[in-house]
Design a protein around this nucleic acid. Structure first.
Lengths: 138, 138
DNA sequence: CTTTAATTTAGAATTAGTCTAAATATAGTA
DNA sequence: TACTATATTTAGACTAATTCTAAATTAAAG
């Protein structure tokens, strides 16, 4: 149970290269949920030589380090979210807008879902589809 | 408010071609949730000339007619479900098994999610991730 | 039958994402 | 500093899922 070597405090920080940092900054700078392609375009403005593959590699790394969150709906590309705490999503059936929200009863839900499905629960995620406030006004 | 022409009772039935019917039968014959490719392979056995594109066209048609349900998780291909009533899904983190279940509190959930997100609700869907009973045993 | 519309087919095209192999960068050590 | 090992980045080839296209076939209507 002894430390064999003097360990840097954040394993993560050691590996936050310029490219990864650029990708992270893009995601953190945005209120919305950009796709890999959008991130690539934006990251390029700061780091013109960054490649597409590196954006994907960086996203995988950042996801693994818990610094960003990936949102996949079957439609089109994954979107990336700076919010890493558990949360749910609402998607507008009209304009496609994607909004984060959190349902405080999520823990109960997970138990209820586990009972029904007989699965040992790990996480739950809820998706609401409907019309966003902006589209409702029109 | 008069009927101008003698209408067949099911608009849907009129258009259920051999190919579409073959696709529907494949889905209805299976307990699991096959992908388009799996459906294509199975449909071929009954209708050897059916093409890939027709499977996709048929799936779109059947979905529109409410006869099958499409399940998309970002990972890989869409899966198709003979169960068309509203329901939720559990996915095994180990083996990928996909199981249907229904949460009776879904209507309440939708309201709660609508309040949080300010969306006008249309539908909710919940996904549980965890370990399925089979994988737990091992 | 003839004409029109819908559907099917095969294969090309598209999109998102991964893989590969060479080039660069970084770190640790003699 | 120089050397070696390791990790990362890059560009482009590749893959998988799905959609599109245009010609061929089938079905429906007159």
């Amino acid at each position: 149970m002894q430390m064999t070597r003097p360990q840097k405090n954040l394993q993560t920080e050691e590996k936050l290269t310029r490219q990864r940092d650029a990708v992270l900054k893009v995601i953190r700078a945005r209120e919305d949920h950009p796709t890999a392609n959008e991130i690539f375009q934006a990251a390029r403005e700061h780091l013109p030589t960054i490649s597409y593959a590196t954006v994907y590699n960086s996203l995988r790394f950042l996801k693994g380090a818990g610094l960003v969150h990936e949102i996949k709906f079957g439609d089109g590309a994954s979107r990336y979210d700076r919010e890493t705490d558990r949360h749910d999503h609402a998607i507008c059936n009209d304009c496609g807008k994607l909004v984060d929200f959190d349902l405080p009863q999520a823990a109960d839900l997970m138990q209820a879902a586990a009972r029904r499905s007989k699965f040992q629960p790990a996480s739950v995620h809820l998706t609401l589809r409907g019309i966003c406030p902006d589209c409702r006004k029109v």
